[in-house]
Every structure is written in structure tokens, then in C-alpha cells.
Design a protein around this nucleic acid. Structure first.
Lengths: 167, 167
DNA sequence: ATCATTGCAAAAGATTTGCAAGGTC
DNA sequence: GACCTTGCAAATCTTTTGCAATGAT
């Protein structure tokens, strides 16, 4: 993580997530703690989607060095969202998180079989969104598109060596 | 509700929701009950979005004629979804329902201030969705787009008589 | 008469909160 | 030292479930 070139995709940012979060904490009179540092590290060393339980599963267990309690995990995830580091959305009734800071806007294909999220980016979609909003005199702050269905892999597995494999 | 012409929007259907649900029940060896009839009536006399609590608020209270218990409301809403009468989606962590049967596919603008859902329909969006899916060899079963922001009314209220009211 | 359905109470799953003890500035 | 944070336990919120009583076919 070079401090001066943290650009990814189409978004230009000058601060690392750590620096950005420190700013956020300071601006609110909040404190840097071991737990917050731990969580920041665990959340930003992998670029993937996760829910609270998946994150907790990766963290040190109770009794081990670096353990963070469940309430603190939830509290801190909310802080990351507030700080603009993470984006949250709902999937099957639970909260799912993904990197926001420094990452380009995108949407998802959701495979209902393997439960994988596949990212895609579409400028057309943004234009369409803005056009619709304009028609309704609506001021957009964000959007969320999730396309449900079956991914390539699951399509293969579900019907092996068949001729009529097309939609 | 004329039995032979229940077409709405672009979708052609020949059965009323009541008839359709009866078919569904019979095909599964399920029974017609007072509670299911009550709920069907309450759900289909208004075309709007609602969650379980909002529906329960409209229903007769405990002790009154036509009361339906909370577990039965939840059970029956699931049946309506199974039967294709209602569509369910998640908003702010709770399940929201809307008419599906006989209604055209559409998406939503969601005002985060007044919490109103505004429907819109876009063929372009469907095409875009299909194109994206095709690229990823993904078989679409459905999608959900929600645009968050502020609606016309809330924009007015939040900043009355100002000149720089544009985005 | 059989077997689905209901209401009640309780459970379950996800997330939040009160509070005393401990950590950070 | 002031006061923010943490972990624990418990509460909350939404939805589901076990079960005995009731109702539909």
C-alpha cells in the first residue's frame, strides 16, 4: 500500500484505508484501539464480500491474541460504513459488506445456487439510472442492482452433458 | 374484478388472484380457510408496498372478527410468494411485499427520507440486464434495482425557497 | 375420520444496547 | 484524569417453529 498512489479502478484517492479511518476517528473524537486496527486489517487484506459471521470466522477465536468480541465487530462495521470504507447491502436477510473506499461503483450477479456474488460495472446503467431519476425529479444518492440467477459453473453442474443447455 | 379480463399493464392473465390461489392450494392439497381468504382480501384490495407489520396493522385486532395471528400472517405471506401472487424484497433489513400476479415487472426509487417507494418500468434496463448476463454466461431468473435518494416532495421540504436547488 | 391449519408460546437468527471494567488521549 | 471502548449479558426485532386444539374436505 503505497501512501501516495492508492488508486484503484476509476476512483482516485490519496489516503490508504488506514489513514482515512484515522481521519474519521479524529474528526469525531474517537480513539484508535487495538480492536479497530485488527478489524481494519482483516477487512482490507482481502477484497471480497462478507457478512459479520464470515468476518468473525476469520478473526482470532476467543482466548487467542487479537480476539474481538461480536458486539465490537458489529459496532466497528457500522463505523467503517459511516467512514465510507465499506458499503453494506442486504442479501437473504443478512447484511453483506464490500469495499467501498477506493473501489469503483459496481453491481452484482448473484448465483442463488453457490451464493457467489459476481461484480460487473456498467456506465450504461448509471446513465439509465440518472435518466429515470431525472424524469421523476428524484435526487439519487446511490443504487443497488442485484441480478439473481445461476452462474456459469452452476449451470454446468446442474445439467451435465445435455444437449438442450441453452436458455 | 371481472373473471375473464384480469389484464393489467403488459401482463395478460385470465384468473383473478383468488382463483389463482385456489388453484395453488388445490394443486398442493392445501385447504381454503377463513384466514387465507381474509389475508388475500386485505392484500389485494390495495395496490401498494407493505411489510408484515403494516399488513397486520390493517387487519382486525385480536378479539375482533377476522383476526389472524402473526405466525399465520407470516406463513400465508410465504404462500402468496410461492403461489406467485406476491413478490418479496428486503429493505432496511425487513421483508417488503408487492403485487406480482398480473402486474408488470418494474423497479423502484426509494426515498430515504419519507421511505416511499416509487415504481418505474424500463425496457432498456431489462435489455441491459440480459446483455450483462449473457457476457457472464449467467442465467437470469430475476433482478432487483433500487435507486436510493430523495423524492421530489422531500427535496422541496428540505430546502424551501432557495435558489440553488439543483443537483 | 383424516389430515391440514391455527394460535399460542417459545425459539431462532441477526444485530443492538446497558453497563461496569479497562484502555486511550 | 476524563471519557471513549470493550466485553459480557441481556435486550430487541423480525421471522420461524413445536405442538395441542380446531377446522376443512
Amino acid at each position: 500500500m503505497a501512501p501516495d498512489d492508492f488508486s484503484l479502478g476509476s476512483v482516485q484517492v490519496s489516503l490508504s484505508p488506514e489513514e482515512r479511518f484515522e481521519e474519521y476517528l479524529q474528526s469525531r473524537g474517537m480513539r484508535q484501539t487495538e480492536q479497530r486496527r485488527t478489524l481494519l486489517k482483516y477487512v482490507f487484506t482481502q477484497h471480497d464480500h462478507f457478512d459479520a459471521d464470515q468476518l468473525i470466522a476469520r478473526l482470532p477465536a476467543k482466548g487467542e491474541e487479537g480476539y474481538v468480541s461480536r458486539p465490537t465487530v458489529y459496532r466497528t462495521l457500522n463505523e467503517f460504513v459511516d467512514a465510507g470504507l465499506l458499503r453494506r447491502f442486504e442479501l437473504d436477510g443478512r447484511a453483506v459488506y464490500e469495499h467501498d473506499y477506493g473501489y469503483p461503483q459496481h453491481d452484482h450477479l448473484y448465483c442463488t445456487r453457490c451464493r457467489n456474488l459476481i461484480e460487473f460495472q456498467s456506465d450504461e446503467l448509471i446513465e439509465l439510472r440518472n435518466a429515470v431519476a431525472k424524469q421523476h425529479r428524484f435526487r439519487v444518492t446511490s443504487h443497488r442492482l442485484i441480478i439473481h440467477g445461476l452462474c456459469q459453473n452452476c449451470l454446468k453442474q446442474s445439467r451435465p452433458r445435455r444437449k438442450q443447455d441453452r436458455v
